[in-house]
Design a binder for these strands. Structure first.
Length: 842
RNA sequence: GCGAAAGUGGCGGAAUCGGUAGACGCGCUGGACUUAGGAUCCAGUGGGGCGACCCGUGGGGGUUCGAGUCCCCCCUUUCGCACCA
């Protein structure tokens, strides 16, 4: 392997080029399928696969990948068989819009982008198994994405129904909520409308409870778990029934109940059933199906106008509208607790998609209802007070705090919490309600009226209705369509390709049409980690045996921006596949850690600011090793950091000094490490080991710098035994440099391979990672801090393990200590072994 | 509004079972080597003071022998969710 004459000068570009070539030639990081099957200590190191944009790899991608790569390489050095795949998440509106903008078909654009990404990723020196990549846009992949759709369909978890969407008349497309800014399309500024379209949904809400409960035991970043918890949004309360009133006066309450026995009911969800006595009106979402039943002839025109207005408004603006609006339907309902008739209104602050789409309004104890009641002059009644004595204290705002029930019949005097139980039980006995847990989570709409995605494998037959594409007919190949621009129709561009969508019904052979919507990109990424080990299989989505061996994923690292959608959808998909018998586990990722975000010079990176870091330039100038090490050094990995051009010099200089210290290896001293330096070496190994395991890369690097500074202090020459262990320690960060130094030490194999020859340090079983000796990491002499009344007055070296009495004598012998004690009696001594002694005097 | 996290030198950031605040790096200062160097090497670097020392972790209280760390109140910033009944 000795290339030309070994130079003594560190040239990162040459070293990196050399080792990247060797890794590729030897297949250092790649698995054959056979080796995947035989691996003894499997470790699946996953990172979120990128969307291959035309701009190329962003520094944020590199930051994310490097941090994950270090974790993988570290495990490799510990002797694990580390499977570290990568792929490309290339379907989706993002790609499609860009393709439209530049006028190149995505089927041409995407392969180019992938090629460019691959080149860049290799240049960074990431330890990928290029033998097991996936590309979500290849038919070999999305064939199985469609297969997964069919599994959900057959399980009754995929369903077609109408739902409102944001529609931009300018772009002629459906927009995600995030793409609507202040009621306008973020791209063209056209006011966005609401449309109703028939769409496919996955019933993720059926899994809400499990998705929430499993959060208690999976090992994930706390913030990510919290985000999912909030997103799922569990709330406990009751569903109550309010009968619709007929407009006539009842003789008494019993007759009233009788009268309404068969009348339709308005169901409401509430977390405050204890306040039902204070429900003085009701509000339905404008789209609520009972609005027609309730509306009186006099109010019909106003109601219709309001409903039209609400429908024309986009979904986002409607939700941020602060001023309350609404109209009276003219109809009444009966409060099941008081028996009183209360008016029913419609207002857009009640959302059809949450709860039952209707609420009981308790203006005394809900801020929104209070505001509404004030605006429209509706009655406000107090049913909760700090104490019974304050039952009739006037309300100048909604009283939302806890308290005791007042003006609530037989429940008056009960604390709120007890009132909830008692009132719900009471209403339940009368058939007017029940306890209910409600979730904020909505079903997952997977339909996209666009071109660039996997066609949903469904066929519509006039005779048979909805017919799933038989599995043996997969994939339903996305046809090459010259004009894939969306249009006014609200249909996918595929709906214009008649020769594609006209098919024979698989069931009856009659005329039928394909579903022309494609599926959401999040479906592509909901299962990709299952595909990697089985990437070469064309007969199954994932091989059962390989999946059992390698999954669930041991370590998953990715951005917090996917905390809810991607991570929740992939958990859901895994759970469903588990329930259908395809997988033995129900949670896909054993451990998930989010990484932080990189900013530049204290500000977010953006094209408009012109402060985007183009990684290629930096790598060309400093080398991938220095770039990687700097990225990991500039802040805590899980929090991110501030990229500053000048900062690169620190880690770059460190790597060069490491090289200069070791090369040429023939000139290294042969004395064993000893004394203070040996102690420091063992401490450094300990710290780096612990820090990498906890993703504290910045402090791991600092510890190595500190150690190298100690080795070189005052221009000192190093001994081999002092620096050889540093090579595996730096290897996860600067793998090329480490390989080169390792080779120059005379080792034949890659440093990441199983150990095959001797080293001058103790290492872990099966790998080249050094171990430390706790005994050697401890010094015989420690610097004691001596305080008088809590203030540091001296620092005195003392023998490790020194007893309190002895330490006190040593302390009192110190001039400065004596000066502050000043002959006063010692009232108390605080003694922290091997660290500190505090003399309290006076 | 709700939820989460965080406020430490000129800068990025270390140190939280309460126990030497400012590791490591950038920048800066001085020196060495150099024709030169924004290269490299060595040393120094929180503020104040000649000094012994004093003051310092967003602000104000508190607990303690001792608080960046724990408790209470307030301010600021970032991120996520946002009329969720």
């Amino acid at each position: 392997m000795s290339e030309k004459a070994a130079t003594t000068e560190y040239r990162p570009g040459e070293v990196e080029e050399k080792w990247q070539r060797i890794w590729a030639e030897r297949g250092t990081n790649a698995f054959t399928d056979e080796r995947l099957r035989e691996a003894k200590r499997p470790f699946y190191n996953l990172m979120m696969f990128p969307y291959p944009s035309a701009e190329g790899l962003h520094v944020g991608n590199i930051y994310a990948f490097t941090g994950a790569d270090i974790y993988g390489r570290y495990h490799r050095l510990l002797g694990y068989d580390v499977f570290q795949p990568i792929g490309f998440d290339a379907f989706g509106i993002h790609s499609e819009n860009y393709a439209l903008k530049v006028g190149t078909h995505p089927m041409e654009l995407i392969p180019r982008n992938i090629e460019n990404f691959t080149r860049q990723l290799k240049r960074v020196g990431l330890m990928y198994d290029w033998n097991h990549t996936v590309d979500t846009t290849s038919p070999e992949y999305y064939r199985w994405t469609q297969w997964i759709f069919l599994q959900l369909y057959h399980a009754g978890l995929a369903e077609k129904r109408e739902a409102p969407v944001n529609w931009c008349p300018g772009c002629m497309t459906v927009l995600a909520n995030e793409q609507v800014v202040a009621g306008e399309c973020e791209r063209c500024g056209t006011p966005v409308e609401q449309r109703y379209l028939s769409q496919w949904f996955f019933k993720i809400t059926a899994y809400a409870k499990r998705l929430l409960e499993n959060l208690s035991w999976i090992d994930w970043s706390e913030t990510t778990k919290k985000a999912q918890e909030n997103w799922i949004g569990r709330s406990e309360g009751a569903v109550l029934r309010f009968p619709i009133a007929r407009r006539r006066v009842a003789e008494d309450r019993h007759e009233m109940a009788q009268l309404h026995a068969e009348a339709p009911l308005i169901r409401v969800f509430t977390t405050r059933p204890d306040t039902v006595f204070g429900a003085t009106f009701m509000v339905l979402a404008p789209e609520h199906p009972l609005v027609d039943v309730l509306t009186s002839p006099e109010q019909r025109a106003a109601v219709e106008a309001y409903r039209r207005e609400a429908a024309s408004m986009d979904l986002v603006t409607r939700k941020i509208e602060k001023e309350k609006t609404g109209v009276f339907t003219g109809g009444y309902a009966v409060n099941p607790a008081t028996g009183q008739e209360i008016p029913v209104w419609i207002a857009d602050y009640v959302l059809m998609e949450y709860g039952t789409g209707a609420i009981m309004a308790v203006p005394g104890h809900d801020e929104r209802d209070y505001e509404f009641a004030r605006k429209f002059g509706l009655p406000i009644v107090r049913v909760v007070a700090p104490s019974v004595e304050e039952a009739d204290a006037p309300l100048t705002e909604a009283y939302v705090d806890d308290g005791v029930l007042v003006n609530s019949g037989q429940f008056t005097g009960l604390p709120c919490a007890e009132g909830k139980q008692a009132i719900t039980t009471w209403l339940a006995e009368r058939g007017m309600g029940e306890f209910r847990v409600n979730y904020r989570l909505h079903d997952w709409c997977i339909s996209r009226q666009r071109y660039w995605g996997p066609p949903i494998p469904i066929i519509y037959c006039d005779a048979c209705g909805i017919v799933p594409v038989p599995e043996e007919d997969l994939p339903v190949v996305l046809p090459y369509v010259e004009n894939y621009k969306p249009d006014q129709s609200g249909l996918s561009p595929l709906a214009r390709v008649e020769e594609w969508y006209r098919v024979a019904c698989p069931r009856c052979g009659g005329e039928a049409r394909r579903e022309t919507d494609v599926s959401d990109t999040f479906l592509d990424s909901a299962w990709y980690f299952l595909r990697y080990p089985s990437a070469h299989r064309d007969d199954v989505a994932f091989d059962r045996e390989l999946t059992e061996k390698w999954l669930p994923v041991d370590s998953y690292i990715g951005g917090e921006e996917h905390a809810v959608l991607h991570l929740l959808y992939s958990r859901f998909t895994t759970m469903v596949l588990h329930d259908l018998g395809w997988l033995s586990f129900e949670e896909p990722y054993t451990r998930f850690r989010k990484h932080g975000l990189i900013i530049k010079d204290g500000a977010k990176m953006s094209k408009s600011r012109g402060n985007v870091v183009v990684p290629d330039d930096y790598i060309a100038q400093w080398g991938a090793d220095a770039f990687r090490t700097y990225l990991m050094f500039l802040g805590p990995y899980q929090e991110g950091g501030d990229f500053r051009d000048q900062g690169l010099q620190g880690p770059a200089g460190f790597l060069r000094r490491l090289w200069d210290t070791i090369v040429p290896v023939e000139e290294l001293g042969t004395a064993p490490a000893d004394g203070e330096l040996e102690r420091k070496l063992h401490l450094t190994i300990k710290k780096v080991t612990e820090d990498i395991a906890a993703l504290r890369y910045n402090t791991a690097i600092a510890a190595m710098m500190e150690y190298l500074n100690a080795v070189r202090e005052g221009g000192r020459r190093a001994n081999r035994a002092e620096v050889e262990p540093l090579v595996p320690l730096i290897a996860p960060f600067a793998p090329h440099l480490a390989e080169e130094l390792w080779a120059r030490f005379g080792h034949e194999d890659s440093i990441f391979a199983r150990p095959s020859d001797a080293v001058l340090y103790q290492r872990v079983e099966g790998g080249n990672w050094p171990t430390y000796d706790p005994a050697k990491a401890t010094a015989g002499v420690v610097e004691f801090v001596v305080q008088v009344n809590g203030k540091v007055r001296a620092r005195i070296p003392m023998t490790r393990g020194i007893a309190e009495a002895e330490a006190r004598d040593v302390a009192l012998a110190d001039d400065n200590v004596r000066r502050f004690v000043n002959g006063a009696p010692i009232r108390k001594t605080v003694f922290v072994p091997d660290r500190l002694i505090n003399l309290v005097v006076g």
